[in-house]
Design a protein around this nucleic acid. Structure first.
Lengths: 138, 138
DNA sequence: CGTCGATGCTTCGAGACTCGAAGCAATGGA
DNA sequence: TCCATTGCTTCGAGTCTCGAAGCATCGACG
């Protein structure tokens, strides 16, 4: 593996993400969301147990004060509610509101409709995902 | 192509980039750099003609005031100098200083050494890059 | 040659993001 | 019961992002 192979790959990954975000900015703005709050909203899967703030911080690679701030942004916009975790009363879990689920669906759909990755075939997508997950597993 | 194939691919791309950035944060901090200034520094290839601020704004998907701010950050840290483009005196090009070239090399090397993509073989990297560039070409 | 709309950048103000330090309440083991 | 640890919040400072407004230069057009 040459350094330039790796450089090109990192650059392509970066560019793919930046393009995806750039293309959904108008949709995010409609809901007074930004890249950071979009990522936070995306990280709350309504099909799973509501994540604690600690889990969210790990998913988003940010620290506790930052998570508090972003949670406030989502709460202020009516997309999320804080709840005490009965199992550990120190912990707060983030629960999507009905509006939160709706907005999350909408911006996620916008992302999938606009991302340049949408130009790939199903086979190519699975191949791409397999490669990246193999790298991430390390 | 199912929606979940696409979702998984976008998530994997996002995660790969976030992990890469997260892992070089300590190195960035040594040079008083952040993700934003790292991206800006990366976008100035010393092997090419110094880019104008307009070109930089396109590369980084941000607007003119933002570019002015980030350029100031880089200038304040002694990594970049502004120069008037002789061909168009309205335009300003960003020229790496000696220190700028050195720091850029260092943080770029740190990124390549730490990125999870480094776990892939040369063949896999070329395959990955080819897939992403095919998507980006659209 | 002069005029004027378009272009490239900066300034300003406001809001959003990020982090370290310090603090509080709850937990769990000694 | 004591107390170190954990999860979150508050605070202050610095960074990032953007729209609106302003300035200088450019280029087309008469």
């Amino acid at each position: 593996m040459t350094a330039s192979d790796l450089t090109a790959a990192v650059a392509a990954v970066h560019e793919s993400w930046m393009r995806t975000v750039d293309l959904i900015t108008p949709v995010l703005a409609e809901h007074r969301l930004t890249t950071a709050t979009f990522q936070a909203l995306w990280a709350i899967d309504p099909a799973e147990q509501p994540p604690s703030m600690k889990v969210m911080a790990e998913r988003l690679y940010c620290n506790a004060p930052n998570l508090t701030f972003m949670s406030n942004q989502l709460v202020d916009r009516g997309l999320v509610e804080r709840a005490v975790d009965p199992a550990d009363r120190r912990s707060r879990v983030l629960v999507l509101t009905a509006k939160g689920r709706r907005v999350r669906d909408e911006v996620l759909r916008a992302a999938l409709e606009n991302t340049p990755l949408g130009a790939l075939t199903a086979d190519e997508l699975r191949q791409l995902t397999a490669l990246l997950n193999r790298a991430l597993r390390t």
